[in-house]
Simulated assay, not measured.
Amino acid sequence: MYKITLVDKISFILVLAGAINWGLIGLFSINLITILVGGSVLFQRLLYTLISIAAIDLIVLIFKCNPFKLTT
């Protein structure tokens, strides 16, 4: 069994924030990231990059915690 680290927990939070942001964009045309960081394009790109890295971390976590993995 794989132990979930602090980085994995932060990744969960970031990916959930990204999913909520996409839901708000789709439903109400409200970009939460723009509201949070203001008009700073640099900070927006930094936050979007962190969210995408967090998603990659969660994909890796899925493969580390694979319960159907066959061992010999």
Score class of each variant (00 low, 15 high):
2 Y>P: 13
3 K>P: 08
3 K>L: 10
3 K>R: 12
4 I>Q: 01
6 L>W: 11
7 V>R: 15
7 V>Y: 12
7 V>F: 13
9 K>M: 04
9 K>C: 07
10 I>V: 13
12 F>L: 12
12 F>R: 08
13 I>V: 12
14 L>Y: 03
16 L>D: 11
17 A>Q: 08
17 A>E: 06
20 I>W: 03
21 N>V: 00
23 G>N: 08
23 G>A: 06
24 L>S: 11
24 L>C: 14
27 L>A: 10
27 L>E: 05
27 L>Y: 09
28 F>K: 08
28 F>N: 10
28 F>R: 08
29 S>T: 09
30 I>N: 03
30 I>Y: 07
30 I>T: 05
31 N>D: 14
31 N>Y: 03
32 L>H: 00
32 L>P: 01
32 L>N: 00
33 I>H: 01
33 I>D: 02
33 I>F: 04
33 I>C: 01
34 T>W: 14
36 L>K: 06
36 L>G: 07
37 V>N: 01
38 G>F: 00
41 V>Q: 14
41 V>T: 15
41 V>S: 14
42 L>Y: 11
42 L>R: 09
43 F>P: 01
45 R>P: 06
45 R>A: 15
46 L>T: 11
46 L>A: 13
46 L>Q: 09
47 L>T: 11
47 L>H: 02
48 Y>C: 07
48 Y>L: 11
49 T>M: 10
50 L>I: 05
50 L>D: 03
52 S>Q: 11
52 S>Y: 15
53 I>R: 07
53 I>T: 09
55 A>W: 05
58 L>A: 00
59 I>R: 10
59 I>D: 02
60 V>L: 11
60 V>Q: 07
61 L>Y: 04
63 F>V: 06
66 N>F: 08
66 N>D: 12
67 P>E: 02
69 K>P: 01
69 K>S: 07
70 L>E: 14
71 T>G: 11
72 T>W: 15
